[in-house]
Write a protein that binds this DNA or RNA. Structure first.
Length: 325
DNA sequence: AATCTAGACAACCGCCGGCAG
DNA sequence: GCTGCCGGCGGTTGTCTAGAT
C-alpha cells in the first residue's frame, strides 16, 4: 500500500515561484510560524504543495540565508567535510551559516567537483586519481586489475577528457626519470590539443604502465600518509604514483599563488589520513568491542567520528557551528 | 542576429526515519 | 507493535541566462 501523496497534484501549482507567492508565504510564516507544512499553503492562500512551500522557505525565503557567492573558506570547508561525510549535504550545510543543503549540493555539483577533478583528485574519494589506479593495480592480480582499471577509467573518462581537452594543464615534472621520453606519464602530461584523438589510448596506456610497476613499498606510495610519508606528502599532490615527485600545480584555477586556500593543495596529508584512520579506528573498535558495540555503531553513524575528523582536518571543533556530540 | 551550448540555480520526486495515535 | 503522517534528505530534472559559434 503506497503512501498518500502529500497533496492533490491536480490542484497544485508547480514551477517557479512568483514574488506574490513569496510574499504570501513569508507573511504567513512571519505570523504563524512553520508548524504543519501541509496546512500552510491552504491557510496562506497558496495553490502549492506543502512540501513545495517548505522547500521555498528553507532554500530561498528564510531571512538568515546568504545568497552571495561561496567564499574560499566556505569552499574549503565543504571539500574537507565532504571528504569525511560524503554527500551528507545537510551535515555539511549545518557548518556553513546561511547556506542550505541545496546550495551546498548545487555548488558541489557545478563547481567543486570539477575543480577537484581538474586537480587530479577524485571528488568521491578525495584521493588522487593515480592513487585509485595504483590501488587497483597493487591489490588485484593483473587480469582482474586490467579489467577493473578499464572500468574505473570508464568512470573517470569524462572527467579526465574534460580536463585534457578543456582545461589548460600545468603539471611540472620535478624528476624526469627518463630523458628519452619513455616515461609515458610525462608524455601524457605534455599532452597537446592536436593529440586529442588518442587521449583515451594514452590514459589506458598509462594505466597499463602503472600496473606493470613493481609492488610499491610505503616509501614509494606518496599517498600513504602513515608515519614518515605523511609530512612529505602534505602540501603537494603526486599526480601519478609511477612518477613519484611529480608535483601537482592547481594552476588551471584562478587562485594560484594568491594565498587563498585553493592555492594550497587540497589533498593534504590529512586528507589521506582522515579516511585511512577512519577505517583503522573502526577496525580497532570492532576488534576490541565486537562489531556491534555502541562505539562502533556511533563511528559508523558518524557522530564521534565527526570530532575526530575535525582534529584530523585542522578544524577546531569549537569553531564548528553545529558540533555533533 | 540567430542558434547552440554549458553553467548555475531552483524546484521536484521519491525514499526514509521519527513520532504520535 | 503497528500504522499513517510529516518533515528531512539526497538525487535528479527543469529553467534561465550568458557566452560562444
Amino acid at each position: 500500500m503506497g503512501r498518500i501523496p502529500c497533496c492533490e497534484k491536480d490542484n497544485v501549482k508547480r514551477g517557479q515561484w512568483t514574488p506574490e507567492e513569496d510574499n504570501k508565504l513569508s507573511c504567513y510564516i512571519a505570523q504563524h510560524g512553520t508548524r504543519n507544512w501541509r496546512l500552510i499553503p491552504k491557510n496562506a492562500g497558496l495553490q502549492r504543495c506543502g512540501k513545495s512551500c517548505r522547500l521555498r522557505w528553507t532554500n530561498y525565503l528564510r531571512p538568515d540565508l546568504k545568497h552571495g557567492q561561496f567564499s574560499d573558506s566556505e569552499e574549503q570547508t565543504i571539500v574537507k567535510l565532504h571528504s569525511v561525510f560524503g554527500n551528507r549535504w545537510s551535515l555539511i550545510a549545518a557548518q556553513l551559516p546561511g547556506r542550505t543543503d541545496n546550495d551546498v549540493k548545487n555548488h558541489w555539483n557545478t563547481k567543486l567537483k570539477k575543480k577537484l577533478s581538474g586537480m587530479g583528485i577524485d571528488p568521491v574519494t578525495h584521493k588522487p586519481f593515480s592513487h585509485l589506479m595504483a590501488e587497483i593495480a597493487t591489490t588485484l592480480a593483473p587480469p582482474q586489475a586490467a579489467h577493473l582499471a578499464e572500468a574505473a577509467l570508464g568512470c573517470f573518462k569524462d572527467e579526465v577528457l574534460h580536463l585534457l581537452t578543456k582545461k589548460k594543464i600545468n603539471f611540472q615534472a620535478q624528476h624526469n626519470t627518463d630523458q628519452m621520453g619513455n616515461n609515458n606519464i610525462t608524455s601524457f602530461m605534455n599532452y597537446k590539443p592536436d593529440e586529442k584523438e588518442d587521449t583515451t589510448e594514452k590514459i589506458t596506456f598509462g594505466l597499463s604502465k602503472a600496473m606493470q610497476e613493481p609492488e610499491m613499498t610505503s616509501n614509494n606510495k606518496p599517498w600513504d600518509c602513515t608515519a614518515a610519508t605523511a609530512a612529505t606528502f602534505e602540501g603537494t599532490c603526486s599526480v601519478f604514483p609511477t612518477v613519484t615527485g611529480f608535483q601537482f600545480s592547481p594552476a588551471p584555477f584562478a587562485n594560484e599563488g594568491d594565498g587563498s586556500p585553493w592555492s594550497q593543495c587540497v589533498c593534504t596529508g590529512s586528507t589521506c589520513t582522515a579516511l585511512d584512520q577512519q577505517g583503522q579506528l573502526q577496525e580497532k573498535l570492532q576488534e576490541e568491542n565486537g562489531d556491534d558495540s555502541n562505539i562502533a555503531k556511533e563511528i559508523r553513524s558518524g557522530s564521534n567520528l565527526f570530532n575526530a575528523q575535525c582534529v584530523l582536518w585542522d578544524l577546531p571543533s569549537e569553531d564548528l557551528i553545529n558540533p555533533m556530540v
